[in-house]
Design a protein around this nucleic acid. Sequence first.
RNA 1: GGCCCCGUAGCUCAGUGGAUAGAGCGCCGACCUCCUAAGUCGGGCGCGCAGGUUCGAUUCCUGCCGGGGCCA
Length: 563
Amino acid sequence: MDLLGRWKAELKEAIEQALSRAEAAGRIRLDGERSFEVEVPREKAHGDFSTNAALALARAAKTKPRDLAQVLVEELDLGSLGVERVEVAGPGFINFYLHRGWLHQVIPLILANPDRYGESRTEHPERILIEYVSANPTGPMNVVNARAAVVGDVLARCLAAVGHQVATEYYVNDAGRQVDLFAATVEARCRELKGEPFELPEDGYQGEDVREIARELLADYPDLLEWEPEARRAFLRREAPDRVVAQQKADLERYRVRFDRWFRERDLHEAGKVDAVVQRYQERGMSYEEDGAVWLATSRFGDEKDRVLIKSDGIPTYFLADIAYHQDKFERGFDRLIDIWGPDHHGHIVRTKAALEALGYPADRLEVLLLQLVTLTRGGEPVRMSKRAGEYVTLEDLLDEVGVDAARFTFLTRSLDAHLDFDLELAVRQSDENPVYYVQYAHARICSVFRQAFGEGADPAQHLPDPEQTDLTVLASDEEDDLLRHLVAFPSEVRLAAERREPHRLAFYAMELARRFHTFYAHHRILGEAPQVEAARLLLARATQLTLRRVLGMMGVTAPERM
RNA sequence: GGCCCCGUAGCUCAGUGGAUAGAGCGCCGACCUCCUAAGUCGGGCGCGCAGGUUCGAUUCCUGCCGGGGCCA
């Protein structure tokens, strides 16, 4: 249950009733506009909740905001709600002050069901497929992939937490020209390793990882180079990308990112789904032949020009396979598709949506979230990330250098559409002061208090006082109040993160929660106080610990018991 | 030339149609006889510029300037 949401809804209802009563009594007349908000004011001095109703409706009521606010206050019936005081303030806000103790209810609420605190049930649950990373199977993942992996992973958890049915997927581009090129490069490296004359294909892959794959292949198939060339090439086109994908999967596993499904492009081709899309376009009169190629009339749906589906040499484009993939997603029954793409793909959004519209799907069922660049530096010097040049920092390098927790947390401290500067040397050198440790430390500190109170290895749940038998209103200091208010806000923060596709909100929530706990901890003792104070503070610490654990868990970051 | 993102404190970045705009880092100073100092407390006249919408704009719209990116 969500205390904030419940209060907002109840207050809003009461205000609407006051409006109706005022109208019935002839005190005001409203034309049209009736929408207003109930919010938690930024300043505690402005009450527990406030509404801009009088400001928003003054025009429609043809009165001054403060006059309307006064009428509303007089007509309000808050009898059963437990509102202690109402005031008109500033330009016409109505501020509500609740009875003491409303905040403290959050403690038993959290303790009763800690693993589900923050969850809610959206009014419009959807079946959502979220696709992300989807790096090429021709090399290791880079830092933008690393960013996408965390963003997608955490967004998926946020969406699930508010009641959507969520599946995650990684699309493997294991067909087409780049795979041919990759296979040819691997073959050349095999020759090199055998000391045979070799020639790297033009535009071939330069990375050291290709040599590594060649080494592994030769170890498993020592006679590979003696195979019949066609058979060898066919084998490499399959085997080489498969090995890269296996490595990607292992790297992501280490990164705590798991996908419900790894979807292979070549399966689409083999199942005939690519051809089927072409046929469907023909049937719908959306495609045409010109210059020996098959074109899709995406320009009818807002694209700047039509796009090629099948090139004049008969080879299907990546675009076509991509459409077939998205159609397949819809056919599997998903209401909404969320794709997370890198900054270099923004030009593809319009044509992809157009292609889906041409198939008869509403364009807004596909949502593309564009990530912005990650700029890597090391000691202030830019680190180049060109795959062609063969020098780039991989996900694996990143995890080796800064660790999983710090990497995940850092990527979650930026909104999707912000460029991200990531200085590796700084992240290592200052690891002690990384925000992730600040948050984890708050958790470890609480664990330590419980060890002190209940003994090493004891389960706090077995020893804590019963929240129903404890007077929690002794938690009345500013620091305790601030902490409680932030605990109460967790469910709405998760909801915002999900609805607005802004997983970074979790990181900022976690930092703020840790900050408020540290402040509380520095100003007050928990153990050794008067028994009723100690009991209440132990419960407050417990609620904080559980919420920290919960938010860190949603971020895929560990919550250590000691540091 | 078209399109996308960004412009908030020294740096990296959050944030909101509302009442006194924040954090981390860096810098200066103070605090461990007291549950972990990976901590706390104090030190900050910053929303690129100009119009517009609005009772109210840092937030929304337009133009300009600056940075980054994609495409032709």
